[in-house]
């Protein structure tokens, strides 16, 4: 697959809770191997957009097309098959608290593969080693720190070697060094697994360091007001809101 092939296409997407519209007319394309950033101020619907792309919330109107299939039009079995290609890191990690880290990672593997117990064990050790948590197999999520929970969540998200990785505010609550390490890890994963990465964040350092495509949501007009490579946006965008956001309010146009 070439890098420029579209992987996810979002077309005229309108998101709403009941009659309250969060965002409307969102249209953008995510190519294979992109690191795509969903950005915007607090409360503009970034996480909601992600929930629409991973199948947790049905769009009020519009389409999400993944690998050519209309995600919300196919029947439920097909959608579940598509969801199997997703790896998702939730904002809080969302590790299942009644299970150890090993069991957390094992669950999707047991669900979708015919691996033997021994093979699963090896995969678990590998995934934990990738995120720097070797030896923590038998720990419960409550016994490790927030940063470690995030990394363990990432290990679980990668359990099935997904084609698309979704991250909801991966660096929120992490110190700058851990955040940088996580960024490096994300780049590494994209390069080695060839995965497409979608990140919800407003961490400017990460946005510029790893993003190569983006969409900017605006809470006031309730739609996207910019998109594309964040570095280009910073250099070329004439939109005062975008400039303001990307420069922490220093470049007021």
């Amino acid at each position: 697959m070439t890098d420029s092939e579209p992987h996810i296409i979002v077309r005229d997407l309108t998101m709403a809770y009941g009659s309250f519209v969060v965002q409307r007319d969102l249209t953008f394309t995510i190519n294979h191997g992109d690191i795509f950033i969903i950005m915007g101020g607090s409360g503009c619907g970034k996480s909601t957009l992600m929930r629409h792309m991973i199948g947790l919330q049905k769009p009020a109107a519009g389409q999400v097309i993944i690998d050519g299939f209309n995600f919300w039009n196919v029947d439920i079995q097909e959608r579940e098959t598509m969801m199997r290609n997703f790896g998702i890191l939730y904002q809080s990690g969302a590790l299942w608290s009644s299970m150890t880290l090993a069991e957390n990672i094992a669950l999707p593997l047991e669900e979708y593969t015919d691996l033997s117990t021994n093979d699963i064990k090896e995969v678990i050790s590998l995934k934990l080693a990738l995120v720097g948590l070797s030896g923590f197999e038998e720990y419960y999520p409550s016994e490790i720190s927030g940063g470690m929970q995030k990394r363990a969540g990432l290990a679980r998200a990668m359990a099935l070697d997904p084609e698309i990785l979704f991250f909801d505010e991966p660096s929120a609550g992490l110190d700058p060094i851990s955040a940088k390490l996580l960024d490096d890890l994300i780049l590494e994963l994209r390069d080695s697994l060839g995965a497409t990465v979608v990140i919800v964040t407003h961490e400017l350092a990460s946005i510029f360091a790893i993003g190569n495509n983006s969409v900017f949501l605006d809470p006031e007009t309730k739609t996207m007001i910019a998109g594309g490579d964040p570095n280009k946006l910073l250099a070329e965008s004439k939109n005062p809101k975008v400039q303001n956001f990307l420069t922490r309010g220093k470049n007021k146009l």
Partner: peptide
């Protein structure tokens, strides 16, 4: 309820369980 607050239920759903 706590699992819902922690997004653990979402994680189950997206894992297909």
């Amino acid at each position: 309820g706590t699992m819902e607050v922690n997004e653990e239920i979402d994680a189950l759903k997206t894992t297909g369980i």
